[in-house]
Design a protein around this nucleic acid. Structure first.
Length: 267
DNA sequence: CTTGCGTCCTGCTCGC
DNA sequence: TGCGAGCAGGACGCAA
């Protein structure tokens, strides 16, 4: 904290979203052009929230292929493919060396969203986000799932129900909890909701520990792959045997997303 | 209100 | 060996 953002370079304007969430990078340099002191860096669900000392800030969404890389700010480094933004962090203490940060996103599903005040951020960018998946309690999950008839898998992917779970970890958590992904949200009992909440917390905790799942794009800021893929029990294993019972894992579509599950363990 | 589906985008895999 | 089609997915907008 207290570091200063300097030398913002916008390589692709449409990765930056303006006040109306449109792809509009012109305002970016105007907004960030003068150096800003970083007051805080936080996470809400899948978004990174960076607040500046002037009250404004930015929300970074990585989408599915986005990442932020860290580099030595005292060295020159050429822009790599799909590097849409780059900036320097000048530390508050002169003894520390500057850090170069880049936003890289091949598919451009992610982006950087600017906000002018923390109220603006809450209302426009964080409004409607459900509780944090990393700390979700069974009673709260059950109460939220009970409001919908949708498939429980679809509900888990809905960030307004629960913030922070995507397709991979929804499948993994449902399998770990022994819940069929097509079950209606309101059919989930309190006992099952508690089991599911614990499975979500555990799955995310473990995935974060080992650096996430590298399938196609995701790598850690230093370029190394995440270690969770080797621990996937169902995702990406359709047709292969269930690690618990040996039954062939099935793949179906729910909410236009692939869902892999074990018909026996998740009956 | 609720729910589902099309859209965006590129890299990888598969089949011929 | 080469090439094109198909697929994957997070969030949003729109339609039924």
């Amino acid at each position: 904290m207290g570091g200063r953002i300097r030398r913002v370079v916008v390589h692709r304007r449409d990765v930056v979203r303006d006040r109306s969430n449109r792809r509009e990078g012109r305002l970016f340099t105007g907004h960030l052009g003068r150096s800003h002191v970083v007051d805080s860096v936080d996470r809400r669900g899948k978004q990174l929230v960076v607040e500046f000392s002037n009250g404004g800030g930015m929300v970074v969404r990585l989408g599915m292929s986005g990442r932020i890389t860290l580099g030595d700010g005292s060295k020159r480094n050429p822009a790599t493919a799909h590097q849409h933004l780059a900036w320097m962090i000048e530390p508050s203490r002169p003894s520390q060396s500057p850090i170069r940060m880049s936003f890289i996103d091949p598919r451009r599903f992610g982006g950087v969203y600017l906000f002018s005040s923390i109220e603006d951020c809450r209302e426009r960018l964080l409004a409607g986000l459900g509780p944090e998946a990393t700390s979700i309690q069974g009673i709260h999950l059950g109460e939220r799932l009970g409001r919908t008839r949708r498939a429980v898998k679809a509900a888990l992917l809905d960030q307004s129900v629960l913030a922070g779970v995507g397709n991979i970890y929804a499948d993994e958590a449902l399998h770990r909890a022994g819940v069929h992904p097509e079950r209606s949200g309101r059919s989930i009992s309190l006992v099952e909701a508690k089991r599911l909440a614990a499975a979500i917390r555990l799955t995310l905790k473990r995935a974060i520990q080992v650096g996430g799942s590298t399938l196609r794009d995701h790598v850690l800021p230093d370029g190394s792959p995440g270690g969770f893929v080797g621990e996937h029990e169902v995702y990406g294993r359709g047709g292969e045997p269930c690690l618990s019972c040996g039954r062939q894992l099935e793949v179906i579509q729910i909410a236009s997303r692939s869902s892999t599950f074990c018909p026996t363990c998740q009956g």
